[in-house]
Amino acid sequence: MVQPVPHPGERGPAVLLGHVNATDGGPGVFADLRSLKSGDRIEVRRADGTTATFEMVRGEQYPKDAFPTATVYGYTAGSELRLITCDGYDPATGLFDDNYVVFAKLIP
């Protein structure tokens, strides 16, 4: 059975994906994701105009070929946020071999 993906602020891990670089070669929306630190606040504007505020817990780098799907997308008892971007750029191939994931919890 497929479970619906939670929106930011709903119970479960809401997930937002973004690039570190833009198609024009400039910075992407998540270019500075690695600069976030534990305790930093992340605000997400929701479709209804309200804002959900999260606190970063940790950031982790994972190889794409060993991505921990259950850890990132699995059930959580509370409202959480995952920000995911590409990481581990390999200049020899021009590809990103890893993903960087920020884990954050909703601030009530």
Rank of each mutant, 00 (worst) to 15 (best):
M1G: 14
M1T: 14
V2W: 07
Q3I: 08
Q3N: 12
P4M: 10
H7M: 13
H7D: 13
H7N: 10
E10S: 09
R11A: 06
V15Q: 03
L16T: 02
L16Y: 05
L17T: 10
L17F: 15
L17E: 12
H19Q: 07
V20F: 11
N21T: 15
A22G: 11
T23H: 14
T23L: 10
T23V: 13
T23I: 12
D24G: 08
D24W: 04
G26I: 04
P27W: 04
P27R: 13
P27E: 14
G28K: 15
G28D: 11
V29P: 12
F30W: 01
R34Y: 12
R34H: 14
L36W: 10
L36E: 12
K37L: 15
K37N: 11
G39R: 09
D40C: 06
D40Y: 02
E43R: 13
E43V: 15
E43T: 13
V44R: 00
V44D: 01
V44Y: 00
V44A: 02
R45Y: 09
R45C: 15
R45G: 11
R46S: 03
R46N: 06
R46Q: 02
D48I: 01
D48M: 02
G49M: 03
T50V: 13
T50W: 04
T50C: 05
T51I: 14
A52S: 15
F54V: 03
E55P: 03
M56T: 15
V57H: 06
V57N: 08
V57K: 07
V57L: 09
R58Q: 09
G59S: 03
G59C: 02
G59R: 00
E60H: 01
E60Q: 08
Q61C: 10
Q61A: 08
Q61R: 14
P63E: 08
K64H: 04
A66H: 13
A66I: 13
P68V: 01
P68H: 01
A70P: 09
A70E: 11
A70I: 05
A70L: 10
A70W: 01
T71V: 10
V72S: 06
Y73L: 00
G74E: 06
Y75H: 08
T76W: 08
T76L: 09
G78H: 10
E80R: 07
E80D: 09
L81G: 06
R82D: 02
I84T: 04
I84Y: 04
T85F: 02
C86S: 07
C86N: 05
C86Y: 04
G88L: 03
Y89L: 15
D90S: 12
D90V: 13
P91S: 08
P91V: 12
G94K: 02
G94F: 05
L95N: 12
L95C: 07
D97G: 10
N99H: 05
V101I: 00
V101N: 00
V102H: 00
A104P: 06
K105Q: 12
L106R: 02
L106F: 02
I107Y: 04
I107F: 05
P108F: 07
